[in-house]
Amino acid sequence: MDKLARQLHDDAQRIDVSVSDELDRRIEASLRAVTPEFEESYPAPVARPPLFGWASTITGVAAAVALIAIVNWRAPAEPVPPPVNIVAAIPSIELKAETAVLTGPLQQELDRLQSDLKKAEEKVKQDIGL
Protein backbone atom coordinates (compact mmCIF):
# COMPACT_ATOMS: atom_id res chain seq x y z
CA MET A 1 0.00 0.00 0.00
CA ASP A 2 1.53 3.35 -1.00
CA LYS A 3 1.71 6.45 1.15
CA LEU A 4 -1.46 8.08 -0.19
CA ALA A 5 -3.50 4.88 0.11
CA ARG A 6 -2.24 4.37 3.65
CA GLN A 7 -3.13 7.94 4.60
CA LEU A 8 -6.62 7.65 3.09
CA HIS A 9 -7.20 4.37 4.92
CA ASP A 10 -6.00 5.74 8.25
CA ASP A 11 -7.89 9.01 7.87
CA ALA A 12 -11.11 7.09 7.21
CA GLN A 13 -10.61 5.15 10.43
CA ARG A 14 -10.09 8.41 12.30
CA ILE A 15 -13.63 9.53 11.48
CA ASP A 16 -15.21 8.86 14.82
CA VAL A 17 -18.63 7.34 14.29
CA SER A 18 -20.80 5.17 16.46
CA VAL A 19 -24.28 3.79 16.18
CA SER A 20 -26.18 5.13 19.16
CA ASP A 21 -28.37 2.85 21.26
CA GLU A 22 -31.35 4.85 20.14
CA LEU A 23 -30.52 4.28 16.47
CA ASP A 24 -29.82 0.64 17.20
CA ARG A 25 -33.26 0.20 18.77
CA ARG A 26 -34.88 2.11 15.94
CA ILE A 27 -33.25 -0.11 13.33
CA GLU A 28 -34.13 -3.35 15.10
CA ALA A 29 -37.72 -2.24 15.63
CA SER A 30 -38.11 -1.29 11.97
CA LEU A 31 -36.56 -4.59 10.85
CA ARG A 32 -39.12 -6.48 12.91
CA ALA A 33 -41.89 -4.45 11.35
CA VAL A 34 -40.72 -5.32 7.84
CA THR A 35 -41.99 -8.34 6.04
CA PRO A 36 -39.35 -9.50 3.60
CA GLU A 37 -40.56 -10.15 0.10
CA PHE A 38 -40.15 -13.64 -1.20
CA GLU A 39 -39.49 -14.80 -4.68
CA GLU A 40 -42.60 -15.81 -6.52
CA SER A 41 -43.05 -19.50 -6.05
CA TYR A 42 -43.93 -21.41 -9.15
CA PRO A 43 -46.03 -24.60 -8.91
CA ALA A 44 -43.87 -27.70 -8.83
CA PRO A 45 -44.02 -29.66 -12.09
CA VAL A 46 -46.40 -32.60 -11.89
CA ALA A 47 -44.66 -35.98 -12.19
CA ARG A 48 -45.36 -37.68 -15.50
CA PRO A 49 -46.50 -41.29 -15.73
CA PRO A 50 -43.51 -43.65 -16.18
CA LEU A 51 -44.45 -44.68 -19.74
CA PHE A 52 -44.96 -41.08 -20.86
CA GLY A 53 -41.41 -40.84 -22.15
CA TRP A 54 -41.66 -44.02 -24.19
CA ALA A 55 -45.03 -43.02 -25.58
CA SER A 56 -43.77 -39.63 -26.71
CA THR A 57 -40.66 -41.21 -28.25
CA ILE A 58 -42.72 -43.71 -30.24
CA THR A 59 -45.11 -40.96 -31.37
CA GLY A 60 -42.16 -38.88 -32.53
CA VAL A 61 -40.58 -41.74 -34.46
CA ALA A 62 -43.91 -42.62 -36.09
CA ALA A 63 -44.43 -39.02 -37.14
CA ALA A 64 -40.92 -38.88 -38.62
CA VAL A 65 -41.46 -42.11 -40.57
CA ALA A 66 -44.80 -40.84 -41.90
CA LEU A 67 -43.21 -37.57 -43.00
CA ILE A 68 -40.36 -39.34 -44.78
CA ALA A 69 -42.87 -41.64 -46.54
CA ILE A 70 -45.01 -38.71 -47.71
CA VAL A 71 -41.99 -36.80 -48.99
CA ASN A 72 -40.68 -39.79 -50.91
CA TRP A 73 -44.01 -41.03 -52.19
CA ARG A 74 -44.42 -40.69 -55.99
CA ALA A 75 -47.60 -41.01 -58.02
CA PRO A 76 -47.61 -43.61 -60.93
CA ALA A 77 -46.11 -42.24 -64.09
CA GLU A 78 -48.69 -40.72 -66.44
CA PRO A 79 -48.20 -40.92 -70.24
CA VAL A 80 -46.14 -38.00 -71.24
CA PRO A 81 -47.36 -36.19 -74.40
CA PRO A 82 -44.81 -35.88 -77.18
CA PRO A 83 -42.85 -32.69 -77.02
CA VAL A 84 -44.24 -29.86 -79.06
CA ASN A 85 -41.90 -28.40 -81.66
CA ILE A 86 -42.09 -24.82 -80.52
CA VAL A 87 -40.04 -23.53 -83.40
CA ALA A 88 -42.47 -25.06 -85.89
CA ALA A 89 -45.53 -23.81 -84.03
CA ILE A 90 -44.54 -20.18 -84.09
CA PRO A 91 -45.16 -18.59 -87.53
CA SER A 92 -41.93 -17.27 -88.85
CA ILE A 93 -41.68 -13.75 -90.18
CA GLU A 94 -40.18 -13.39 -93.62
CA LEU A 95 -37.45 -10.97 -92.92
CA LYS A 96 -36.04 -11.11 -96.41
CA ALA A 97 -39.15 -9.58 -98.08
CA GLU A 98 -38.71 -7.43 -101.18
CA THR A 99 -38.55 -3.70 -100.64
CA ALA A 100 -41.53 -3.24 -102.98
CA VAL A 101 -43.62 -5.54 -100.82
CA LEU A 102 -42.87 -3.45 -97.74
CA THR A 103 -43.26 -0.03 -99.42
CA GLY A 104 -46.23 -0.96 -101.67
CA PRO A 105 -49.02 0.30 -99.41
CA LEU A 106 -47.22 3.58 -98.87
CA GLN A 107 -46.74 4.02 -102.60
CA GLN A 108 -50.44 3.41 -103.21
CA GLU A 109 -51.37 5.98 -100.57
CA LEU A 110 -48.99 8.47 -102.21
CA ASP A 111 -50.56 7.86 -105.61
CA ARG A 112 -54.03 8.47 -104.19
CA LEU A 113 -52.93 11.70 -102.56
CA GLN A 114 -51.31 12.91 -105.82
CA SER A 115 -54.48 12.03 -107.75
CA ASP A 116 -56.61 13.97 -105.24
CA LEU A 117 -54.24 16.90 -105.52
CA LYS A 118 -54.47 16.86 -109.31
CA LYS A 119 -58.26 16.77 -109.23
CA ALA A 120 -58.37 19.65 -106.80
CA GLU A 121 -56.00 21.63 -109.02
CA GLU A 122 -58.20 21.10 -112.11
CA LYS A 123 -61.29 22.09 -110.20
CA VAL A 124 -59.67 25.32 -109.08
CA LYS A 125 -58.66 26.08 -112.72
CA GLN A 126 -62.25 25.54 -113.92
CA ASP A 127 -63.55 27.76 -111.15
CA ILE A 128 -61.37 30.64 -112.07
CA GLY A 129 -62.03 30.16 -115.82
CA LEU A 130 -58.64 29.16 -117.08
Binding site: V19, L23, R26, I27, S30, L31, V34, P36, E37, E39
Partner: peptide
Amino acid sequence: LQDTLIAAFRYLH
Protein backbone atom coordinates in the same frame (compact mmCIF):
# COMPACT_ATOMS: atom_id res chain seq x y z
CA LEU B 1 -28.66 3.96 7.16
CA GLN B 2 -32.00 2.83 8.58
CA ASP B 3 -33.68 2.97 5.15
CA THR B 4 -30.78 1.06 3.62
CA LEU B 5 -31.01 -1.78 6.12
CA ILE B 6 -34.78 -1.99 5.81
CA ALA B 7 -34.55 -2.10 2.01
CA ALA B 8 -31.82 -4.73 2.20
CA PHE B 9 -33.94 -6.93 4.45
CA ARG B 10 -37.05 -6.45 2.37
CA TYR B 11 -35.35 -7.29 -0.90
CA LEU B 12 -32.87 -9.83 0.39
CA HIS B 13 -34.40 -12.42 -1.94
